[in-house]
């Protein structure tokens, strides 16, 4: 089942946000106040492409002991892996921070994965454009196909990571700036109809 944990409404599926200085809700990229049924992982490391799979395997193992829904774990893993690889490729140094929150216990109803890091200023405009494009599309799968076609023409990189999160993991993408840090957050939330 591909839609067990649906996305937010289309209007919210890709936004660029710059919080006010000291904005408590976004300073540490925590999307919502934590609840009793929330299970979170927060990990800071110096990003290295060779170690991304190890981190992904760790968070997969952690959540497999809590959540018995392999599909939700796979969506989390895709987002965590692709965001961490982006941080490893484009961070300008220092620690990158991975934050994952899955709410709802064994029956997840909210999934959030974010990675924040010091970003290369030259990449930020590209990131803004990609997230705005992925947010404005009415059909994420079709847009992903377009990204795939473009990927065949690229010499360097695939350009697929964020589109993969949007289409395969069916997650909303949000870009936030916190001082000199950039945070890319991927979120899936239930629709009101499914909550009832």
């Amino acid at each position: 089942m591909l839609n067990r944990l649906p996305n937010a409404p289309a209007a919210d599926q890709g936004t660029v946000r710059t919080p006010a200085v000291g904005d408590a809700d976004t300073e540490r990229a925590v999307p919502w106040p934590r609840e009793a049924d929330s299970r979170s992982v927060e990990l800071a490391c110096e990003p290295d492409l060779a170690q991304v799979s190890s981190v992904r395997e760790f968070v997969e193992s952690y959540y497999k002991t809590i959540i018995h829904d392999g599909d939700v774990i796979c969506r989390m893993a895709v987002a965590a892996h692709e965001l961490l690889e982006n941080a490893a490729k484009y961070s300008t140094g220092g620690l990158s921070r991975l934050q994952i929150e899955i709410r709802g216990g064994a029956n997840p109803r909210l999934l959030s994965v974010s990675v924040s890091n010091h970003a290369d200023p030259a990449r930020i405009d590209e990131l803004k454009v990609a997230i705005a494009e992925l947010g404005s599309t009415a059909d994420a799968a079709e847009t992903y196909q377009n990204y795939m076609s473009r990927a065949t023409l690229r010499k360097d990189g695939s350009g697929l990571g964020l589109a993969r999160i949007r289409a395969e993991a069916e997650m909303t993408l949000v870009l936030e700036f916190q001082g000199d840090q950039v945070c890319v957050k991927a979120v899936a939330t239930p629709t009101p109809e499914e909550e009832s």
Partner: peptide
């Protein structure tokens, strides 16, 4: 195969193309 990243997916896509 436990996982394939998007860079490797690109190689599959180029092959399919």
């Amino acid at each position: 195969l436990a996982f394939m990243n998007s860079s490797c997916l690109k190689d599959l896509i180029s092959w399919l193309d």
